[in-house]
Design a protein around this nucleic acid. Structure first.
Lengths: 215, 215
DNA sequence: AAATAATTTAAACACTTGTTTAAATTTTGG
DNA sequence: CCAAAATTTAAACAAGTGTTTAAATTATTT
């Protein structure tokens, strides 16, 4: 008599459910949805395949849960910066810093997110759940104001986003490629990423907030 | 009596082999190696599954062929620019232009390459076949010279590479994500990419080749 | 035109896939 | 402690996987 564990948890030991989620996250992150089987995940957990379906109904449902968690983590790291009480220039600088630090600890995340969205079977957009919390921080208004005051280069929100994400996300997505191309080890790459962060910060800040040439 | 088509082609009609390669390229590019079956490809070709193995021995071998072709195409677009007789600054500007134009027509390529390298089963490095032809253009020496003369910002080749690839590759890898996030159609995104190209060119050139502040 | 080789096909192979069933085990509540 | 519920398991399911076999078809050569 199997029952799916719904919202109403009647004194269920969550450790198993959480163990599966953790294992699934590890496997999905490294191998992708198509690149792994439910047995791979079960092996990672150290137990039976049927257990995954007992707790999460299907591989797809489990994946969606992991994906939403990942997106939430990512979103949270952004919100923290945007909610701070700083001028836009400092917020931007801080954002780059925090994002880099975050991805240093979760380097598979950018690739995972893009891949998941790429092969998004359903048509449900992630936009509302993602943009609404950011909107609430007032960052978009702050951006408009800064551009109106001439403090920030006039360019669309979309182009700003692409510029920022390119420089912050890509380096982590291309880790293996970079290592292979240049024949370097993980430690060396780590140093390169730190150097890259410094470059990106200077370059982007200078570009987005051009100084009206000092006398 | 099946024979694998080797180098020695005895008046074989190549159209079938090429048709399979073209179909496989389309399918692999959009769905990835794990995301498709050989029957998907066969369906795209419009013929039997066994034909793929007849011509290419295995799904993996076929994929490697497609991958190498893609890398070759990509490499070629770079070599062309580097081989030109221009100052480094102009070469860099031209490179960004050409790369953007190239990816405008092959937007799946950056993602395809990174994914393929990411889940590279074997340990064989792509570095030599990739770097050697670039080395031969003399671009690395030109770079050293420019840095020695103070024309170019002193930073490692690796960091320059990451910076360039981030800004040129990522926008195409994140097409679907950008569309979903901002709720825009293909045409709008295309315009954004053109705008992004202009931004990237100005930003990178200014950063990599800083002007000793004019009087 | 006949024989030989090359190409294409349908069918089967062994194996893996996600999921389900039903039985076994553990935990819980009275 | 014992029945009822929750959890975990082994086994099976049908469908899909990459690959191979052998027969059928087409093209080539003499």
């Amino acid at each position: 008599m199997q029952r799916i564990c719904q919202n109403k948890q009647m004194k269920i030991d969550l450790s198993t459910e959480e163990k599966i989620k953790a294992a699934a996250k590890r496997v999905f992150m490294t191998k992708g949805f198509d690149g792994c089987s439910v047995r791979d995940i079960a092996k990672e957990v150290g137990s039976n395949v049927a257990l995954l379906n007992y707790y999460f109904r299907s591989k797809e449902k489990l994946f969606e849960l992991i994906f939403e968690g990942a997106m939430s983590d990512f979103l949270q790291s952004i919100i923290e910066v945007f909610s701070s009480d700083l001028p836009l220039k400092e917020k931007t600088s801080l954002l780059i810093d925090k994002e880099f630090d975050f991805f240093m600890e979760h380097p598979e995340l950018p690739m995972f997110i893009i891949q998941a969205i790429q092969q998004n079977k359903n048509e449900s957009s992630v936009a509302p759940t993602f943009f609404e919390p950011i909107e609430k921080t007032g960052i978009f208004q702050q951006l408009k104001d800064a551009q109106a005051k001439g403090e920030m280069r006039p360019m669309s929100l979309r182009n700003i986003t692409i510029l920022l994400m390119s420089n912050v996300h890509y380096p982590f997505m291309s880790k293996k490629l970079t290592q292979q191309f240049h024949g370097i080890d993980e430690a060396t790459l780590q140093q390169d990423l730190l150097a890259h962060k410094a470059h990106v910060k200077e370059m982007l800040i200078n570009y987005l907030f051009p100084q009206n040439q000092p006398a």
